[in-house]
Amino acid sequence: MKEIHDFSFLALHRHGEHYFTLVLRHSHLSPMPPVAPGQFVEVRVDGEPGVMLRRPISVHDVDPDAGTLSLLVQVVGKGTRRLSQLTEGDRVNIVYPLGHGFSVDLPVSSRALLVGGGAGIAPLFYLSKVLKAKGVDCTILLGGRTAELIPVRDEFRPYGTVCLSTDDGSLGHKGLVIENPAFAEQYDIIYTCGPTPMMKAVARSAAERGIRCEVSLENMMACGVGACLCCVTDTDQGHRCVCKDGPVFDITSMKKWYENK
């Protein structure tokens, strides 16, 4: 069941100038609905002239018992900049949970690889927590142009083996995530979220190696519920809404998408 709820500001942690984590507390009368890893929320941005549409942001972490929701956000425009200025006493209106998340029903001791780049790291955190609780062995491979562009990397350590790649070699392996030695190992499933060229490269490699793979896409959205059809992606079945049919897609239906460089 999708809901429109008010949350109150709890904390904001900055990670350099590009990223911040916004922690919100559920302050609505009815309880929080269950949120699956990979699902997203639509955040209303108040008090910023010119910002009208909600901003789709993936769930970085959620604790239904404590009633907290964490969003890892990259500052990309007026809307996300306004969110980075939220402070004590502010309220945030959210529509959630939206979309179709990652598949997490894996046998105990399965090996999973989570590949994240940039803001795409966000949904992988809650995913790694859920997988760890299911006894899945996770390798978390995070990439960025520089060390500063891989936020919250240390938060992942309790949930799996963390491997890092940077373009400039300032942290971890120098080069692309697909060139990291951890990427070449054998896995039961690969999950990926990040820049489109990175996800396509991961998907092509997974397809060649016969590894199950899910990609989480990020397109420009308006409604977030599959009504306006603005956020479509090409799939092997034609245009599908990233907001409703995704954002997570199994690559078996995405050949046309990942083969198109």
């Binding site: 397109n219 420009m220 306006c228 059809l229 603005c230 956020c231 479509v232 992606t233």
Partner: peptide, 18 residues
Amino acid sequence: GNPYPRMVETPSGMLNSV
């Protein structure tokens, strides 16, 4: 329909080309 991108937010409104 049309190829993506199909929408952009504009001052107090949005453009769509679905």
